[in-house]
Structure formats: structure tokens, C-alpha cells
């Protein structure tokens, strides 16, 4: 099941979905981002969408949307040219519904992630002068508290929440370690080096089960092998007490499918990836195999894939700005 919209721009960089509150009512809205404009779309009848707010960027281009769960009146975006230079909050003043932007952070921003309970974690700088900060927003997004986490002695590459443990946060580093923080105290709990065969991996999601951490990694540089085909995602089990790890599941493409990981998103137990072939592939991490393949539509390769934060929909984007919404 699909619908489409054209944000009338040729430089689509990201898409997201969130609940947006207007006049006391929350609606499931779509956010589209191009380099110079971010738009908020509200649903109309018969799966049509209407653009309700637009924020323009003339100086620094938009790189990505940073979804922050549990916020209903604010969108966070990262701006920069190749590297992230700013994080901004996009909101509307309550009186006249006029769009405005607030600078949240600037500098050499290496990684960021929106967390449950209206929190945003970001890291700036490299290992010797690295600062890791949590911003907590008020319900209306108007004010914020700030807290620092103890930095590790390695540069953070990505962050990942631990499903079911709101006070735990994972980070991956540029030299192939996984670190764990206690968000309540800011303590750095553990640094665990994982096998070098996982190098340059990105951690998308983590789950705590039976005393073990299960983490989902993607492999942008993984090579095809005869035994495993084309690996795209990997599920790894780590014992946080001993820092020992073992591979549990390798998500490879079905035979006959070509391509490597380009970008992807993991929600609950489903993982979606855009492949270099322009196809989107979806894996069920519980079943352990690829459950759906979405070939390019209208001869246009896919360039973006995101799970909706509001329901079980998949948002698929093409470079020309068209967004397709699929029910999974």
C-alpha cells in the first residue's frame, strides 16, 4: 500500500515521521528534508498530504533530521557541509504559528541521537577534547536542561539506545569499540573492543535480554563471500560483564540479489536497508531472513529508508524528492 508526495525539490536528504500537536490535537505527520528546506506534512483524507510548515536554510545545508521521541512540537535537524556543524530546533511560535529556528549546538559535531523522554545526545570534538552532552527538552520544546557524560578515550562514531533500558546508552567508536553509559549518573560503565572483522560498522539498535546485550550492526564495507552471501546487518551478542562477544545472526541478501549496504534503519525486530543496487531490502531479525524486497519504482532507485516513529509504516524516498509510504 503506498502513496506519494513531491516536496518539489531535487535534493531530498532525509525523511521522518512524528506526532505533531496543533491546537491541542496530535496528528501523525511526515517531515521531509532537502538541503535548503524542511517541510512538515499533515495527513488529509484518502492518503493525501498537505504541507503545513516550511523552514528555509540559506547559509548551511541540511544534512539530516534527528527524530526526538516524545516531543510533539519541535523538529531537530543537523546542518553542515559533509560534517555536522550545527544542530537546530525547528518550531512554531504558539501565537501566530510562525516558523522559527533555534540554534541548539554548534561546533565539530561527530554524532547525535534523539532518545526517549525528550532527550538528545551529541558528541563534539575528538578523543582528546571530546564532549558528550545530553539535552533534555520540556514538553513544549521551549526550555532544556544539559548534562555531560564521561567521555571515553576514543572518538565516538554513533550512538544507539538500548531497547527496554531507558538509562543505558551505547556508543561505537572509530577504533571498533562499544562503550556503555549510565545516562542517569553520566558514568562510563564499560568499553568493549569487538572483533576487527566488524570494523567501520554502525550500531543501529541494542536490546538487553537475559544478561546479554544484543546489538544490530550494519556493514557498509562488507564483502560478498561464498559462505554468507552479501552480509548487510549482523546481530551480535555481548556479555557486558566480561566484554566478550559472539556473532548470532548474519542478515544476507537472498541469492541472486546484488548490492551492498548504503543506508538503513532498525525498529523493534525489523531492519530495512537501501542497497547500492537501488533496491530496499527488509529483514525480520527474529526469523533471521529477508522478508521483503522493494525494487526501484518508476525506474528511480531508492535513496532513503526510514521506519515511521508513529506506526508500522516504512518511508521510502527517491533522490527526486518523492516519498512513498508502505504499510509493513
Amino acid at each position: 500500500h503506498s502513496t506519494e508526495q513531491n516536496p518539489s525539490s531535487s535534493c531530498s536528504v532525509d525523511v521522518s515521521a512524528m506526532w505533531w500537536e496543533r491546537a491541542g490535537t496530535k496528528e501523525p505527520c511526515i517531515i521531509t528534508a532537502c538541503e535548503d528546506v524542511v517541510s512538515l506534512w499533515k495527513p488529509l483524507d484518502s492518503m493525501q498530504w498537505e504541507k503545513v510548515h516550511t523552514w528555509h536554510f540559506t547559509e548551511v545545508p541540511v544534512l539530516q533530521i534527528v527524530p526526538v521521541p516524545d516531543i510533539y512540537s519541535l523538529i531537530c535537524v543537523a546542518l553542515g557541509s559533509l560534517e555536522i556543524r550545527e544542530i537546530r530546533a525547528l518550531l512554531c511560535s504558539s501565537g501566530d504559528e510562525c516558523e522559527k529556528q533555534v540554534l541548539l549546538q554548534s561546533g565539530d559535531i561527530k554524532a547525535m541521537l534523539g532518545l526517549t523522554k525528550r532527550r538528545l545526545v551529541s558528541s563534539t570534538g575528538t578523543f582528546c577534547n571530546q564532549q558528550i552532552q545530553i539535552m533534555t527538552f520540556a514538553e513544549d520544546g521551549s526550555s532544556k536542561d544539559e548534562q555531560l557524560l564521561m567521555p571515553p578515550d576514543e572518538t565516538i562514531l554513533t550512538f544507539a539506545e538500548v531497547h527496554g533500558m531507558q538509562e543505558a546508552l551505547l556508543g561505537t567508536t572509530t577504533v571498533n569499540s562499544i562503550v556503555i553509559w549510565n545516562l542517569k549518573t553520566g558514568q562510563l560503565l564499560k568499553k568493549m573492543h569487538i572483533d576487527d572483522s566488524y570494523q567501520t560498522c554502525v550500531c543501529h539498535r541494542a536490546y538487553s535480554e537475559m544478561g546479554l546485550l544484543f546489538i544490530v550492526l550494519s556493514h557498509p564495507c562488507a564483502k560478498e563471500s561464498q559462505a554468507f552471501g552479501s552480509p548487510v546487518f549482523q546481530l551480535l551478542a555481548i556479555n557486558p560483564m566480561t566484554a566478550q562477544s559472539v556473532g548470532v545472526l548474519l542478515c544476507s541478501l537472498p541469492q541472486g540479489q546484488a548490492g551492498r549496504f548504503l543506508e538503513g534503519d532498525v525498529k523493534d525486530h525489523v531492519a530495512a536497508a537501501v542497497l547500492t543496487s537501488g533496491t530496499i531490502a527488509i529483514w525480520d531479525l527474529l526469523l533471521g531472513h529477508c522478508t521483503a524486497l522493494l525494487p526501484p519504482v518508476s525506474d528511480q532507485s531508492w535513496s532513503l529508508v526510514k521506519w515511521s516513529g508513529t506506526d508500522s509504516h516504512l518511508l521510502a524516498g527517491q533522490k527526486d524528492g518523492n516519498i512513498f509510504i508502505y504499510r509493513y
Binding site: 543505558a168 549510565n182 549518573t185 564499560k190 537475559m210 551478542a237 556479555n239 560483564m241 566480561t242 566478550q244
Partner: peptide, 23 residues
């Protein structure tokens, strides 16, 4: 490979590591 290779497991790993880590 098996999770038995990972050493002793603690269901309260988060609390245990928090009590051991520097503040």
C-alpha cells in the same frame, strides 16, 4: 559459536557495572 563462550552472565549487569564504575 555459543553464548556459553561469553563468560559468567549477570542479569543485573547494569547495576553491577554502575556500582563499580568511577562516579
Amino acid at each position: 559459536c555459543s553464548t556459553a563462550d561469553l563468560g559468567p552472565i549477570s542479569l543485573n549487569w547494569f547495576e553491577e557495572l554502575s556500582s563499580e564504575a568511577p562516579p
